[in-house]
């Protein structure tokens, strides 16, 4: 068995272990902040986390907090558990959110209306426990912020 295959198998049977590159992302998320690496040279915001900017190949980057807002690219609902650790979670919805900062992030969808998720819907980040992974970013329908009404 190759090292790659071995790692892949472990990743579905036990909690995902963050890598050197993405530890900062998951730790920040557990504290309620969405951070990505921004390239010091070309400003490209990177995900998945990596030691190199895929645009300009610079290694210099700074972790930057972004607004947790975006739109739903698409979604599915898992009705079968494809790993033992997911048996208690099915059915569960997974979405790909296109953040306004340009990053495309997989996520769990939460607080969906009765009719379910809709491609293109506006989403806002929240932070919840998912399986054995502790508190991670999840996304739900964008919260409408009502303009402040002056008291008479």
């Amino acid at each position: 068995m190759s090292a790659e295959t071995a790692r892949a198998e472990v990743s579905t049977q036990t909690p995902y272990l963050p890598t050197e590159d993405d530890t900062r992302f998951w730790q920040s998320a557990a504290e309620g902040h969405l951070l990505f690496q921004k390239c010091d040279q070309c400003s490209y915001i990177r995900w998945p986390a990596a030691g190199v900017c895929p645009e300009c190949l610079s290694r210099a980057s700074t972790w930057l907090e972004v607004d947790g807002v975006g739109t739903l690219w698409s979604n599915v609902t898992y009705r079968r558990a494809y790993a033992a650790s997911l048996k208690e979670q099915v059915p569960y919805p997974v979405g790909l959110v296109e953040l306004d900062c340009g990053v495309r992030l997989l996520t769990r969808l939460v607080d969906l209306p009765h009719e379910g998720a809709e491609v293109g819907m506006a989403l806002t980040v929240d932070y919840r426990e998912v399986g054995d992974h502790g508190v991670v970013p999840v996304f739900g329908p964008a919260k409408t912020v009502l303009p402040a009404v002056p008291l008479v």
Binding site: R7, A8, E9, S11, T12, Y16, T19, D22, P48, Y78, Y82, A83, L86, Q89, Y92, V94, L105, L106, T107, R108, V130, G131, H133, V136
Partner: peptide, 15 residues
């Protein structure tokens, strides 16, 4: 197995 990188796909059960 999640395809490609074993990152957020594993966390969110995107297998």
């Amino acid at each position: 197995l999640p395809l490609g990188r074993q990152d957020d796909a594993s966390v969110y059960g995107f297998l």
